[in-house]
């Protein structure tokens, strides 16, 4: 399928989703849907680095929070100086640029080493950025920051619908980017890194450059997902914005859905995101995080290729018919003689 057609189909699906949400007429749908869409973006962004290149990023929350706090900083600056109010897409681009830049810097420092170092460094990055934000009084420090959400916005109506729509467009964009990467030279390069980095390097694949591209794209998308968040939540606080739930969700969703193609994170995010929304309302938010943790551990042990892998096994088809590319070396028998 050509990319423009793919994009058109998904825009159609997005329009349909929006129409259904409007038809239901309950604003709660938009609040819940926003969170699910946000996770679609986070999971897809994580998968570009984690699923395609095989480098694990535990710092999703850090990139997400960077986007959110860049919005807070600009909001403060604008309200204090009575400057022209920046529209949401511009704020998202700024948040994305900052996160992408930080992703690039992180990658540059750690990606030349073994993969585990990168994973640990991302974990530590979250702690350090949180320390910086806690000590930065301009954006509220540890007390948190309030953002006044406008009640209405001109053509759409209530502001939450606008946020939902913005996130919907971002989610479609993220999926399209992921698919575009998957079927390009870049994607094949990523796959060689994941399967055997040393061999790829020996064949002349510019591994460091490709990894840096992946971290930058992935970080930027996470930052863009975070940028509208202060407007959604109204009160932004470091402890919850840097919370482990973003990190665990953006890892769990692709791994549960399946990491080899764009559809895996989408399936994982929609399944797990909706499940969590239901569990938060009906049980409690702590229990729903426990469910995510258990599902993550269960899936990585029992179904290493996620829902997509399970479907393939069920249909008895070879993965390449559907996924487009086969993982090399995943199901090899004992690696050690």
């Amino acid at each position: 399928m050509r990319t423009p057609l793919f994009l058109l189909i998904w825009l159609g699906i997005a329009a349909l989703a929006y129409a259904i949400a409007v038809a239901l007429g309950n604003d709660y749908i938009f609040f819940a849907g926003y969170v699910v869409l946000q996770y679609v973006v986070l999971a897809t962004a994580w998968n570009i680095l984690g699923g395609y290149c095989g480098y694990v990023n535990f710092g999703s929350a850090a990139f997400f929070a960077l986007g959110a706090y860049s919005t807070v900083a600009f909001y403060k600056y604008i309200t204090e100086n009575e400057f022209y109010r920046l529209p949401m897409p511009v704020l998202m681009l700024i948040g994305g640029a900052i996160s992408g830049f930080v992703g690039f810097g992180m990658g540059y420092l750690t990606l030349r080493l073994r993969g585990a170092f990168f994973a640990i460094a991302t974990l530590a990055l979250a702690v350090v950025l949180q320390t910086l934000v806690v000590n930065w009084d301009y954006v509220g420090g540890s007390r948190g920051a309030y953002i006044v959400r406008p009640e209405e916005i001109a053509p759409i109506g209530s502001y939450i619908r606008y946020l939902f729509l913005v996130m919907l467009v971002l989610a479609v964009a993220a999926i399209t980017i992921a698919r575009l990467i998957e079927h390009s030279r870049l994607g094949y390069g990523f796959a060689t890194i994941r399967d055997d980095e040393l061999a790829a390097e020996a064949c002349g694949v510019p591994t460091l450059k490709l990894k840096l591209i992946a971290t930058t794209i992935s970080g930027a998308l996470m930052g863009m997902a975070g940028a509208p968040f202060p407007y959604y939540i109204g009160y932004l606080q470091p402890a919850s914005t840097f919370g482990l739930d973003y990190a665990v969700n953006s890892i769990a969703m692709p791994l549960i859905g399946g990491t080899t193609s764009w559809i895996g994170p989408l399936i994982g995010a929609v399944l797990l995101g909706s499940l969590q929304q239901i569990a938060t309302v009906t049980i409690s938010s702590a229990v729903n995080l426990l469910i995510v943790g258990c599902l993550l551990v269960g899936f990585v042990i029992v179904a290493p290729n996620g829902v997509v892998g399970l479907v393939h096994t069920y249909l008895q088809r070879k993965p390449e018919d559907f996924v487009g590319r086969r993982r090399v070396g995943t199901d090899s028998p004992e690696a050690v003689p």
């Binding site: 665990v248 769990a252 943790g293 993550l296 551990v297 690696a335």
Partner: peptide
């Protein structure tokens, strides 16, 4: 044994931490 320790093994320990 399956040679998947880099991605899924990490996720496994992360899940354990979380649980």
């Amino acid at each position: 044994r399956r040679g998947q320790e880099s991605l899924r093994g990490l996720a496994f320990f992360f899940g354990l931490l979380f649980i």
